[in-house]
């Protein structure tokens, strides 16, 4: 007779490792902790929930010797939502659309300039500081939003997954220090601040801008979209110019 219940921890663990459940649960829990920490610390910019959560999830993966491939079965499910979230950035922009006509010229100049500056300083600084050509290409598209930067990097001969990590890294640095640096550089107007945040630090910078000021956030979202477009067009041209 087949028993109704059986003690089978190994089979359970094997199922959990193959299922996206553990990755999603871990990520959501870490994000929840990240938000709580951020709140507890009086919303101090250094405690961005995304930073706390990445540290927590990474620590759990390293401690349990779980590979990134196993984790990303769940991670990919959450990253899928970046699609509708990017579309959703039309909403804050719609609310600020009455400012758009006046910002047309500044955007047409500042976005391509920002792309050229981000790509060329990223590429040449890596080389200057002793990195090889592949690392320089991997760094070059880091200002564009993750789904764009990693594809561009792979196409150009960089390491796509590392570009994704660098892109997130720039976003976190910017979310923590961006508003401080702009105040230091006397960039005060919310439209200028928002465009700058979106142009160099995509969605993560945009999330900080949205939290600081809805006007700033709307233009960060727009600049993020335009920078993704500009990087896709200009990166191959610039890399060819650099002889890479």
């Amino acid at each position: 007779m087949i028993p109704l219940v059986a003690w089978q921890p190994e089979a359970t663990w094997a199922w959990l490792q193959g299922s996206p459940l553990l990755g999603v649960l871990l990520t959501l829990a870490a994000y929840r902790v990240g938000r709580a920490v951020h709140h507890r610390c009086g919303r101090h910019p250094a405690t961005q929930p995304v930073l706390v959560a990445i540290a927590l999830v990474s620590a759990v993966l390293l401690a349990t010797e779980t590979s990134y491939g196993e984790y990303s079965r769940g991670g990919d499910l959450l990253a899928f939502l970046l699609g509708p979230a990017t579309v959703a950035l039309a909403v804050p922009l719609h609310r600020q659309a009455h400012h758009l006509r006046r910002l047309l010229l500044p955007l047409l100049v500042a976005i391509p300039l920002g792309v050229v500056v981000s790509v060329s300083t990223g590429f040449w600084l890596v080389k200057l500081l002793g990195g090889d050509e592949q690392l320089a290409i991997t760094m070059a598209p880091k200002a564009a939003t993750t789904p764009v930067s990693l594809v561009l990097s792979g196409d150009a001969g960089g390491i796509a997954a590392l570009t994704a990590v660098l892109t997130i890294g720039v976003g976190i640095v910017s979310a923590v220090l961006g508003p401080w640096l702009m105040t230091l550089a006397r960039v005060r107007h919310p439209h200028a601040r928002g465009v700058a945040m979106g142009a160099v630090s995509h969605g993560i910078g945009t999330s900080r801008s949205l939290a600081d000021d809805p006007e700033e956030g709307a233009f960060a979202g727009l600049a993020m979209g335009l920078t993704a477009f500009g990087t896709a067009v200009l990166l191959p041209v610039l890399l060819a110019l650099f002889g890479a």
């Binding site: 990755g23 990303s72 959450l78 002793g130 760094m139 997130i168 993560i204």
Partner: peptide, 30 residues
């Protein structure tokens, strides 16, 4: 929005050795 960037950021666990070996060009240039 920040929740959705966590999985890509966790990718760093696969590149710890690379980031350690090339820390100066990576962190400095970034």
């Amino acid at each position: 929005l920040q929740l959705l960037f966590i999985p890509a950021g966790v990718g760093i666990v696969a590149f710890l050795a690379v980031v350690r070996d090339d820390a100066i060009p990576i962190v400095g240039a970034l």
